[in-house]
Computed example of a mutant assay.
Amino acid sequence: MTVELRAATPSDQSDFRRLWQGFCDGYGLTLAPEVTDFTWGRLMDPGNALTLRLACLDGRPQGFAIHQHHPSTWVLGDDGYLEDLYVAPEARGRGLGRALIEDLVAIGRARGWRRLYWLTEIENAAARRLYDQFCDNDGHIRYRMTL
């Protein structure tokens, strides 16, 4: 088994859509096709803050991390935000989620980010077992208002 972590390219669109659908299905989400089209366009736009990293097993994308960085009022520098992390069910248990987070840690350190953070649903026990190996949750509760 060969694991490769890399930036997504336009040729990865069909694999991204397959993985993205699995991610949405896992959360019971139905997104309009134009939202996925818009997201893909943003991910491929070098001028956009969102970035897509892929975890590939034997050359085939089997997981992704969507992230961005932004200024912070709490540190002397930027924060990195891991917006979405997903590994296909058939590839789980092979360390891809851990590898994607470690990849972002390395990117953040190289770019001078001061912190990396992410959110997950409180009942997502499998993800929390992984995340708890990196750091403790910070006790915050998210509020999100639709505008």
Results as ranks from 00 to 15, higher is better:
Thr30Lys: 07
His140Glu: 13
Thr51Met: 03
Asn48Cys: 09
Glu83Met: 13
Tyr131Gly: 04
Cys135Ile: 03
Ile122Val: 12
Gly93His: 06
Gly97Ile: 11
Ala55His: 00
Leu104Glu: 05
Asn48Glu: 13
Glu102Lys: 02
Ala125Glu: 15
Pro10Glu: 06
Arg128Glu: 06
Pro71Asp: 10
Ala49Ile: 04
Tyr131Arg: 06
Met145Ser: 01
Ala7Lys: 11
Gly139Ile: 02
Gln133Arg: 15
Ile107Ala: 07
Ile107Arg: 13
Arg18Pro: 11
Leu31Thr: 07
Leu19Val: 13
Leu147Asn: 04
Gly47Leu: 00
Leu82Pro: 10
Pro89Gln: 03
Leu54Trp: 05
Ser14Cys: 11
Leu104Asp: 03
Ala8Glu: 01
Ala32Pro: 13
Gln68Ile: 05
Asp12Arg: 10
Gly22His: 10
Val105Ala: 07
Asp138Lys: 02
Asp79Tyr: 09
Arg128Asp: 02
Phe64Ala: 01
Leu43Trp: 00
Ala88Arg: 08
Phe23Glu: 09
Asp136Asn: 12
Gly77Leu: 08
Trp20Asp: 11
Phe64Glu: 01
His69Asp: 05
Leu5Cys: 12
Ser72Thr: 15
Asp25Met: 05
Asp25Thr: 08
Arg129Gly: 03
Asp37Met: 09
Asp25Gly: 08
Arg115Lys: 04
Gly93Thr: 04
Glu90Asp: 13
Arg18Tyr: 08
Thr30Phe: 00
Arg6Glu: 05
Ile141Arg: 15
Glu123Gln: 11
Ile66Pro: 12
Thr51Lys: 03
Phe16Lys: 00
Tyr143Cys: 06
Gly28Asp: 09
Gly22Ile: 15
Ala91Cys: 02
Asp103Ser: 13
Leu52Ile: 11
Asn48Pro: 02
Asp37Glu: 13
Leu50Phe: 06
Phe23Thr: 14
Asp138Arg: 07
Ala49Cys: 03
Glu102Ile: 03
Trp20Val: 15
Asp103Val: 12
Leu130Ser: 02
Ser72Lys: 07
Ser11Asn: 10
Ile66Ser: 05
Met145His: 07
Cys135Lys: 07
Leu76Phe: 10
Thr9Lys: 05
Gln133Pro: 08
Arg18Gly: 13
Pro46Val: 09
Gly26Phe: 15
Asp138Gln: 11
Ala99Ser: 11
Trp118Asp: 03
Thr36Gly: 09
Tyr117Ile: 07
Asp138Ala: 10
Glu34Lys: 11
Ala99Glu: 01
Met1Leu: 13
Ala88Met: 11
Thr51Gln: 10
Arg94Val: 01
Asn124Gly: 07
Leu54Val: 00
Tyr86Cys: 14
Pro46Asn: 03
Asp78Tyr: 14
Ala32Asp: 15
Ala55Arg: 02
Gly63Asp: 00
Arg144Val: 04
Gly63Tyr: 00
Gln13Ala: 15
Ala49Leu: 08
Leu43Glu: 00
Gly77Arg: 09
Met1Ser: 12
Phe134Leu: 12
Leu76Glu: 15
Ala126Met: 03
Asp45Ser: 10
Glu83Ser: 14
Arg98Asp: 04
Leu116Arg: 03
Ile122Gly: 14
Cys135Arg: 09
Leu96Ile: 04
Phe23Asn: 09
Val75Cys: 10
Gly28Pro: 12
Ser11Cys: 12
Ala88Pro: 14
Trp113Tyr: 08
Asn124Val: 02
Leu100Val: 01
Leu19Gly: 11
Trp40Met: 15
Ala49Tyr: 02
Tyr27Arg: 15
Leu96Lys: 07
Leu82Asn: 02
Leu5Asp: 10
Asp79Arg: 12
Ile107Pro: 06
Gln13Lys: 14
Val105Asp: 05
Leu104Ala: 05
Gln68Lys: 04
Glu34Tyr: 08
